[in-house]
Design a protein around this nucleic acid. Structure first.
Length: 472
DNA sequence: AAAAAAC
């Protein structure tokens, strides 16, 4: 039933497409689509801000867009947090569109896609803080994240934003595996908002130390990954089942920068029939402020030399850098090579102790380290405004098809640079025909051309590349 | 042959 309704909207939406593409380049169109009563709102103030977002509203959802936070009926305490702590002035585009959908009755489920660094976290954090009843001392909102780092980062945002609200929160993430943590009897969570990772949340549910009776909001950050088979699909479904047994009034929010077609379909299936959707075309997802390059390297050693001579030599002038590698082992090897060459780099990957991971992230966020090597642990969601440069030491490939690119991960990785519209550059280090092919598949997928740095040995080539990306 | 969570 829900699927046919969505299908009909999509086909009708296509009929309107020429109208939006024929408009002038600055005048982008946000479409309002109502399943019952199909209309397009061209008067939306946010039309000229950036790219198209396709909105599908369901049922009789009154559609509106918030130009200011005042329009959202937020508590004075929450508004103070937004202005004083977060230093926000007005809602970003995704916030303006999604917040009314989240905060207005009948609190329909929402699937929302938006560009990297566009302020998704604030959408659901604000949503949770606003909908929670400060007087009711029990878990009311739950947010699931794919990594501990992201859970910590999100709870940090919640802490700041909710500083004056008195709303309590707890971070439900696992520690290191020891006999103590295994046996330790945990006391029930009384916090009103819980942010955590799948394993711990699941366990808390089964051992009944996470009460679900008053839960009214369930958020999946990086939702496409949380619902993907190769991600946390089983855990997510398990958690939803637990919640479904206790309450039927729980609003589900799915947020991510990426939703491939199969996850999109599955996501629409798991939310309740009547729900809202926001989507961005994949060709428009890659950020214009982040310039991407590819570099042909004859061998692995050349990649290390490129990093050493053409990138690290610029030092702090180019801001912070994240170097992505495919495996934990490559992370260790590359780390060793660069340290042996005398460079001060740090590395994070899932095999490290939680304590060390926390320390490395903190040092990087505090600006004490400039260059961080990482596995895809940090590919998603990691928010550090000073990161201007991302290096793909290895291209991201599908877990079961190493000849196929993982375009979603690629997009998430490059999104670590250029947070909130800042300038950024990406260097993809390619070695061999396979890399060439994977790279060209990525270009095709996003319908873009990636410029090649002519000579991996030529310093001037890299300087020119960084200059045109706005970094030097 | 694999990033991630966690027991």
């Amino acid at each position: 039933m829900a699927e046919t309704a969505a299908d009909s909207v999509i086909s009708k939406e296509k009929d309107y497409a020429p109208a939006s593409t024929s408009s002038t380049s600055e005048e982008k169109v946000v479409s309002e689509i109502d399943i019952q009563n199909l209309t397009i709102d061209d008067s939306n103030k946010f039309l000229d801000e950036d790219s198209n977002i396709k909105i599908i509203t369901s049922g009789d959802t009154p559609y509106r867009s918030a130009f200011t936070f005042e329009e959202l009926n937020l508590s004075p305490q929450l508004l103070k947090g937004l202005y004083v702590e977060m230093k926000y002035q007005k809602p970003s585009k995704i916030q303006a569109i999604s917040l009314p959908l989240i905060l207005d009755p009948p609190y329909l489920d929402l699937i929302a896609q938006a560009h990297n660094g566009s302020g998704k976290t604030a959408c659901f954090t604000l949503g949770m803080l606003s909908r929670v009843d400060p007087k009711l001392k029990a878990p009311q909102a739950l947010c699931c994240c794919p990594t501990r780092e992201l859970a910590i980062q999100n709870s940090e945002v919640l802490r700041k934003m909710g500083k004056y609200t008195g709303i309590t929160f707890e971070c439900a993430i696992g520690g290191d595996f020891t006999t103590e943590t295994r046996i330790k009897k945990r006391s029930p969570i009384t916090a009103q908002v819980v942010i955590g990772t799948p394993g711990t949340i699941k366990r808390r549910m089964t051992e009944k130390t996470l009460g679900l009776s008053y839960l009214m909001m369930l958020v999946f950050d990086e939702a496409d990954h949380m619902l993907a088979k190769e991600g946390f699909k089983d855990d997510s479904l398990n958690m939803m089942k637990h919640i479904g047994r206790v309450t039927s009034h729980c609003q589900v929010l799915l947020f991510s920068a990426t939703f491939n077609e199969s996850v999109k379909k599955f996501a629409a299936k798991i939310v309740k029939g009547n729900h809202n959707e926001l989507f961005v075309k994949k060709e428009e997802l890659s950020l214009e402020s982040v310039i991407q390059y590819k570099v042909d390297c004859p061998d692995e050693l050349a990649k290390v030399m490129v990093i050493k001579d053409q990138i690290l030599e610029f030092g702090e002038r180019i801001g912070q850098t994240i170097i992505f590698v495919r495996t934990r082992n490559s992370a260790i090897m590359l780390h060793r090579s660069l340290v042996d060459l005398g460079y001060d780099v740090t590395t994070i990957q899932g095999a490290l102790k939680q304590e060390d991971r926390d320390k490395i992230v903190k040092e990087f966020k505090d600006g004490l380290t400039q260059v961080l090597i990482s596995t895809d642990l940090l590919a998603r969601g990691f928010d550090q405004q000073q990161v201007n440069l991302v290096i793909n030491y290895n291209l991201p490939v599908k877990y079961d098809h190493s000849t196929e690119p993982d375009c979603e991960v690629y997009l998430h990785r490059i999104g670590r640079a250029g947070r909130f519209g800042r300038k950024g550059a990406v260097f993809n280090l390619l070695c061999g025909d396979m890399d060439e092919m994977i790279m060209s598949k990525i270009e095709t997928h996003f319908d873009m051309k990636i410029a090649k740095v002519p000579d991996w040995r030529n310093e001037e080539d890299f300087k020119a590349a960084m200059r045109s990306a706005g970094l030097l």
